[in-house]
Amino acid sequence: MLEKLVKRSQVSSPWLVHFNSGACNACDIEVVDTLTPRFDLERFGVLLKATPRHADILVCTGPVTRQTKDRLIRIYRQMPAPRFVVAVGSCACTGGVFHGCYCVYGGVDAVIPVDAYIPGCPARPDAIIDGVVKLLAKLRGDAPPCAAKNSREAI
């Protein structure tokens, strides 16, 4: 009963928390861009929250640096279950151009489990919205609106 309620509220109004684990800012400004009038992610009920304790979805940008690794894990643990992680941008997906740098661990999935990958350098706002919508479809249990069969299972 409670689970159903939680699921329903998560699907109809997912709350996000955004964490920059070492990004160059390009993805971050595009994430904020999705919330501003042109793209307006809020029409899907999505709200950007200030604290991980209120959030359902953690939006990560950037490769994970040595200094942010522990903080990323801490923030992930602070989120109430069920929790989801979206990696935005090539760096968050794989480490991107920073792969191999001495202070970089790699993508976000090197540290915490990731539910959705949104590639791009930076990921365009349209792509971010698409990613979030597909994640919501996954939560609802539907098939993704346009199942990408041949690409790496993006969502």
Binding site: T65, R66, Q67, H99, C101, Y102, C103, V104, Y105
Partner: peptide
């Protein structure tokens, strides 16, 4: 450099061997 960076490691030196144990990347 990060808080847990080992003492005596200076990454921009040409003879820097990398972090002990090949840690990170």
């Amino acid at each position: 450099v990060p808080d847990d960076w080992p003492e005596g490691h200076y990454p921009l030196r040409k003879d820097w061997p990398g972090l002990p144990g090949g840690e990170s990347a």
